[in-house]
Design a protein around this nucleic acid. Structure first.
Lengths: 121, 121
DNA sequence: GACAATACTTGTGAATTGCAAGTACCATCG
DNA sequence: CGATGGTACTTGCAATTCACAAGTATTGTC
């Protein structure tokens, strides 16, 4: 069970290193869901793209190891964990916003989900 | 055979659609290389991360189909094509810049490659 | 024309993915 | 108190994708 093996660091380029961590089709969608208010496992599992649960669990573990998210006991006292973005993870909001804007501009038929609208200036 | 099969569109979310296209560990590195001045096959093949050549060829084909890059066939019919970013591809520079800045801020030991320095204000 | 370089393609095993099913834990209902 | 149901995972497996090596067909240079 290679649960969340750290990926190789391919080069010291900051773009390459960022992609080593979040360069796949699912990780940034999880970050997106955090910005929509997701906190618990099922919040991510029920997102419209339908992430497989084994991948969800693996990504949550990887992001925890990387310090992008942290898991805490939820406010309601239940034993189920809640996940939250760290400052490092919150900083990914800028990357996410650029991807959203690029998709809206260049890909036909895209529309933002509730809670992710571009900020009004 | 299945040269550059279009990926599924998982949802109308612009972030998801962008990731459907560029959500892997190599594609944005190619875009980065374009911004460094790369134009031809070997320019990408010799980048420090060492992309496998079959993946390089497949990604160039996929990005062409998506309208992110275009290849100029020389008038004499020679095989040495040059690839170039389209406006759609150039717009990805903003995503790239945010990834670069995030990596520089949050990942230890990263340093930008020549030709990718943050713009001076 | 010989020879190296360029731009790929093909083959193969390893790793990762997507889907389904199963497990463990807790809460509540009857 | 046992049954039922939801949450949060883990496991198994087929299929896809990946990385690495090697091969091929042109092209540029001498």
């Amino acid at each position: 069970m290679p649960a969340s093996a750290p990926r190789v660091r391919r080069s010291p380029c900051p773009v390459a290193r960022t992609l080593d961590l979040i360069g796949d089709r699912w990780t940034l969608l999880l970050i997106r869901d955090f910005f929509r208010g997701a906190e618990r496992y099922r919040d991510f599992a029920t997102a419209p793209e339908g992430i497989p649960t084994n991948i969800l669990a693996e990504r949550l573990a990887r992001l925890s190891v990387a310090g992008v998210i942290e898991s805490t006991a939820p406010a309601d006292g239940s034993r189920h964990r809640a996940y939250r973005l760290t400052p490092k993870g919150r900083a990914l909001g800028r990357v996410l916003a650029e991807m959203r804007d690029w998709g809206l501009t260049w890909e036909k038929g895209t529309r933002v989900l509730a809670g992710l609208e571009p900020a009004k200036p």
